[in-house]
């Protein structure tokens, strides 16, 4: 097995075993979305109107907070040292970890989105589109968050620092994600342009994220 797939499978295996956090992101997502109507009231018309925005905000927070331990666990048990000594570039190792994280944490978010949309009274035909924007946009959140995870582990500070570092960087993803979802549901703007930009953001962060995160880890050495 190649080094890349072995790291990918190892991280996925840890995530779904006892003590792993695979479904914790989805659980957090469910709770955040549930809290919203408590704050703004149970008016179904209002909820339907702002439903896509609530779903996107919830997914944003869930996917970022779950990134907190991405490198921290490997740092604490000494695995990170060895990951840096691998035969493949650190950028690829970091990308493998990010993909494993996306598959175990963000994909469940996308899967439960229709159920949460039901609770927010988002119309059935619209749910597919909102899920599609999350499917296209969450890789960008993971790979941008990756940079914050690498920075915060080298500074040995977790939790909120990650969110503070990364949230401003995710503004474009949020803008185009919600814009695409709203365009699909109510219009009148076409769905295509914001959705294409969202995909572009994901692809760009797929390149930028691992490079920046690997640089952060290397420079965090001293």
């Amino acid at each position: 097995m190649s080094a890349f797939t072995s790291l990918l499978l190892r991280d996925m295996r840890i995530a779904v075993r006892v003590g792993g956090g695979a479904l914790m992101g989805a659980l957090f997502f469910l709770i955040v979305v549930t809290m919203m109507p408590f704050a703004i009231g149970p008016d179904l018309g209002l909820l339907a109107r702002i439903g896509p925005a609530i779903l996107w905000l919830g997914a944003l927070l869930a996917s970022l907070l779950a990134l907190d331990r991405l490198f921290a666990n490997d740092h604490d048990d000494g695995s990170l040292d060895l990951l840096m000594m691998g035969s493949m570039p650190l950028e690829l190792a970091v990308a493998a970890k990010a993909i494993a994280h996306w598959l175990t944490t963000c994909l469940p978010l996308v899967v439960i989105t229709p159920v949460l949309g039901l609770m927010l009274n988002v119309e059935m035909h619209a749910m597919g589109w909102v899920s599609l924007t999350l499917l296209a946009g969450t890789p960008a959140l993971t790979f941008i968050g990756l940079i914050g995870a690498a920075l915060s582990v080298t500074l040995r500070r977790g939790g909120l620092l990650l969110a503070v570092l990364v949230l401003p960087l995710t503004v474009p993803v949020l803008i185009f994600g919600v814009a695409a979802a709203n365009a699909a549901i109510v219009g009148p703007a076409p769905f295509g342009p914001p959705f294409t930009i969202l995909c572009a953001l994901s692809l760009a962060s797929f390149v930028l994220g691992p490079v920046a995160a690997a640089a952060a880890l290397r420079h965090g050495l001293e």
Partner: peptide
Amino acid sequence: HYLGHQDALKPSL
């Protein structure tokens, strides 16, 4: 090969 103070093992594996 680097054998440091930490064992680099995952308890759940």
